[in-house]
Simulated assay, not measured.
Amino acid sequence: MGPSSMYNVALILLFSFLLGMSSAKLSENFYEKSCPKALSIIKSGVRSAVQAEPRMGASLLRLHFHDCFVNGCDASVLLDDTANFTGEKSAAPNNGSIRGFDVIDNIKTQVEKSCPGVVSCANILTLTSRDSVVALGGPSWKVLLGRRDSTTASFSDANRDLPAPVFNLSQLISSFSNKGFSVREMVALSGAHTIGQARCVSFRDRIYNDTNINASFARSLQAKCPRSEGDNNLAPLDSSPIEFDSVYFKNLQSQKGLLHSDQEFFNGGSTDSIVNTYSLNPLTFASDFANAMVKMNTLSPLTGSNGEIRKNCRKIN
């Protein structure tokens, strides 16, 4: 091969490399030409679901969080178990508690009708989290798109990586730090608990054994959550559970955090000042939450030729 031919081959390889790099980047207008109606279909599906059941907004936000914290935002959490495969749905932090799968299925069906095989389940999850927060009065943020779907999931990683409601502050800091989040970003993301509800099994130990809890608040919860039954009985995560606001932080200041892990953010430690800031400045919280969500949305996405575009979010193609 002569110098000219070698030069041409090098140019082709360089072009291919650059093309590969560009295809691996996330972009806000990723579906502008390939599926122009995708974002409006997803937004409409979320709005309908939240109008029918306001709690669903919190459930979709949590579903996205539980996806991204386990090997990145790749829709692995949506995969059903099979005879030969145990995925993330069966892991302790998820089993019996994460929900919203039917909403994702319905949205995916509508998107597939508009543009078959184009929009990934991972991107749908990312957009539903933003649209859910907006539907409940919270901030919006820029969502970069282009993720592809995983072809596997990890039961063990879900058990290991997702922070538990019994964690103390140092465990929480470690859990979020492992994903690249600062302490302030961690507290901002915890503000997601300004919407939604939790099961009795998640807060039973706190209302009977914690000392940093408002006594009347504990008694009111004990009526809903007996010592030995009612595991699935629900209680609101803050006193305005269908409004995305900063009341969560005010509740912490009054020792009325529902989960042990919530109250750890205001328990005489290093995060007390951040809680005070967010309680006094709702707009600061909203801005910090939105920025932290942008960061979370880009945790280890599958792009380019990695992964696939699932036809059915519950199973690989």
Score class of each variant (00 low, 15 high):
Asn306Thr: 05
Val294Thr: 15
Ala58Pro: 01
Ala91Leu: 03
Gly137Trp: 00
Ser16Asn: 13
Asn212Cys: 05
Lys142Asn: 05
Leu61Ile: 13
Leu13Gln: 14
Gln171Ser: 10
His193Gln: 14
Thr128Val: 15
Gly45His: 04
Ser175Met: 07
Asn233Leu: 05
His64Ser: 14
Gly2Thr: 13
Lys25Cys: 09
Asp105Ala: 12
Gly100Ala: 06
Ile98Lys: 03
Ser190Glu: 12
Asn276Pro: 00
Phe244Met: 11
Lys179Trp: 05
Ile107Tyr: 07
Asn281Phe: 09
Phe155Pro: 05
Pro36Asp: 06
Gly96His: 08
Asp67Gly: 11
Met186Asn: 05
Phe101Tyr: 14
Pro54Val: 09
Arg219Gly: 04
Arg206His: 09
Ser279Gln: 02
Ser202Phe: 05
Pro165Phe: 06
Ser114Cys: 07
Met293Val: 09
Val143Tyr: 00
Asp80Lys: 14
Leu26Asn: 06
Arg204Met: 04
Leu252Phe: 04
Asn209Cys: 06
Asp80Tyr: 13
Val46Leu: 01
Ser175Leu: 07
Tyr248Arg: 00
Lys224Asp: 02
Val201Ser: 15
Arg148Thr: 11
Ala218Pro: 00
Ile41Trp: 03
Ala198Gln: 11
Ala24Glu: 11
Ser177Ile: 00
Glu88Tyr: 00
Thr86Pro: 01
Ser190Leu: 12
Leu144Val: 03
Gln255Asn: 15
Ala75Gln: 09
Ser34Trp: 00
Lys33Met: 06
Gly96Trp: 07
Pro116Trp: 10
Ile41Tyr: 04
Lys33Gln: 11
